[in-house]
Write a protein that binds this DNA or RNA. Structure first.
Length: 498
DNA sequence: ATACGATAAGGGTTATGCTG
DNA sequence: CAGCATAACCCTTATCGTAT
């Protein structure tokens, strides 16, 4: 049975040189789409893939359910997400893909009752994922090539439990994610879903839909796809063949996601298409985009990411713990022993402010000029890095403004005119950009000069620059051109406002 | 393709039963 | 009796079949 996903999937290049660069985790879309059909037949999906250079390829996924456990259902998706959340809480999936867990921890995440059948269900689900065979074939016409991958989500599953000396069960279960999943995770394709939000959703299709929308929208806030493809991804039964049947089945999930603030609008441009609009507030509350980063903070974030901390996690650490604390652990990292995964180590130790196992040798570090002043954080023998709430909050330091590399002042002659024009342009935006976005993105902007038909606007950080240019660039230029004439341009620069 | 009624299924809670 | 597991129940939702 072949089903055709109709939506082309955008594919980005991967760093490694490969015959066929393909986005990997699109298979997640269909991995859990079984269950509705009780027959345990092989499920097959064909997806059109658009390569970065515009070339076209076809990707075929085949899922062979295990004879013993049958096809995947929604619960298996939840278990899979619970393991990823558990791994994330432990600092991320390590390079070797091995994640240790106890069934008790997963049961807590899944919020299941404490009884034997809960544990059995989770266990069966893990084994089911291990024994479901996945085959992904990619055909790339231009190269006259193909690539055929065979794997299962978990390359290996081990259940081990001992009794400790008090007779209590002590669990040492582990799974090893297949390298395909590990690579997806580290290349950022497995999105950092808000797992708490994910598990707060109750309606039948809500969880799967949230995953799909968040993946599908990429960096944007709007996602459109055919109801046909949506039905496939959510594993709707064959009886939902008509669009109205799908809409009715999805109604309660839509309602829940709007009520909980993820979606602002669900519409159907025509009767075969669904259009989802994601709330900007929801996305922003979960990224740290809106925050202004000092150069020092940005350097710390980059250092954390270089050491395999996930991008979102790195920003979270710097935002919540401050640069001083982060740098303290970063510099101590090379001296630690038995660190399996630097990213995991850093995330765990910094977020919990855990005492270091090995203190870095102070004298050596200072001589090498790699350790600047620790301030109050200088480790004291025996009591390493204790509470330090107010020491490390980076925002409350007005005196460091002058140290920033770029500080823009309004141009003496054109500054006032620029500010005036900018104010009018923003008024023009009323109705074209919603009020929340206006406030969030433009409150911190300042127009500083107007020369040769070019309006220069200062934004606080590179994120804001990127966001303003890509999302609002064209409407803004249009509005400026409307007031200044056709050749008018907008220039966005990053810097501290004067 | 759609609307809608019938029914199965699922979640949640309480009652009951079993075992040591 | 504690500590569980299961049965019974209610209510909501998912799914299916049928008439239009």
């Amino acid at each position: 049975m072949a089903r055709h996903g109709s939506e082309p999937v955008r594919v980005e290049a991967v760093p490694r040189a490969e015959l066929v660069p393909t986005e990997r985790n699109i298979e997640e879309s269909y991995l859990f789409a079984g269950g509705a059909n009780s027959e345990n037949e092989i499920r097959e999906y064909v997806v059109d893939v658009v390569l970065e250079d515009g070339g076209k390829a076809k990707r075929k996924f085949r899922y062979t359910p295990s004879k013993e456990y049958g096809d995947t259902i929604d619960f298996d998706r939840d278990v899979y997400r619970a393991i990823i959340l558990h791994a994330f809480q432990g600092g991320g999936i390590p390079q070797d893909g091995v994640v240790y867990f106890s069934l008790y921890q997963l049961r807590k995440i899944l919020d299941l009752p404490d009884k034997g059948s809960s544990y059995r269900k989770i266990r069966d689900s893990i084994v089911k994922l291990q024994t479901m065979a996945v085959n992904a074939d990619t055909y790339w016409q231009e190269l006259k090539g193909f690539k055929s991958e065979y794997y299962s989500t978990f390359a290996r599953v081990n259940f081990e439990a001992n009794e400790d000396r008090f007779g209590r069960a002590s669990e040492h279960h582990w799974v090893r994610f297949d390298e395909v999943i590990v690579r997806s995770y580290h290349e950022g394709y497995v999105r950092d879903l808000d797992h708490n939000f994910y598990f707060s959703l109750n309606k039948k299709h809500s969880r799967a839909l949230y995953s799909e929308i968040d993946l599908g929208r990429g960096k944007g806030l709007v996602w459109e796809l055919s109801l046909q493809d949506l039905g496939l991804r959510l594993g709707m039964a064959a009886s939902y063949r008509s669009p109205s049947a799908k809409k009715r089945a999805l109604a309660s999930a839509h309602e829940e996601m709007k009520r909980k603030g993820f979606l602002t609008k669900v519409s159907f441009p025509d009767k075969h298409m669904a259009r989802y609009e994601v709330a900007e507030d929801f996305v922003m509350a979960r990224t740290f985009l809106e925050r202004r980063w000092t150069p020092e903070e940005e350097a710390t974030i980059r250092a954390l990411i270089r050491n395999n901390v996930r991008a979102g996690g790195a920003r979270e650490l710097v935002a919540t713990k401050g640069t001083v604390l982060c740098n303290y652990y970063l510099r101590a990292l090379p001296y630690q022993k038995w660190v399996r995964d630097p990213g995991g180590f850093l995330y765990k130790y910094i977020s919990k402010e855990k005492p270091l196992d090995v203190e870095p040798p102070q004298r050596f570090l200072e001589e090498a000029e790699v350790v600047p002043d620790y301030g109050d954080l200088a480790p004291v023998e025996g009591t390493p890095a204790a509470p330090m709430d107010d020491v490390s909050t980076p925002d409350a330091e007005p005196e460091d403004v002058d140290e920033r590399p770029t500080s823009w002042k309004p141009d003496a002659q054109t500054g006032a005119a620029a500010a005036d024009l900018w104010r009018r342009v923003l008024q023009d935006m009323d109705g074209k950009i919603d009020a929340t976005s206006l406030r969030v993105w433009f409150d911190s902007c300042q127009a500083i000069s107007l020369a040769d038909g070019r309006l220069t606007v200062v934004v606080p950080n590179p994120f804001a620059k990127d966001y303003v240019e890509t999302r609002f660039g064209s409407v803004l230029e249009e509005a400026i051109a409307g007031r200044l004439g056709k050749s008018a341009r907008l220039k966005v620069v990053v810097g501290e406002r004067a």
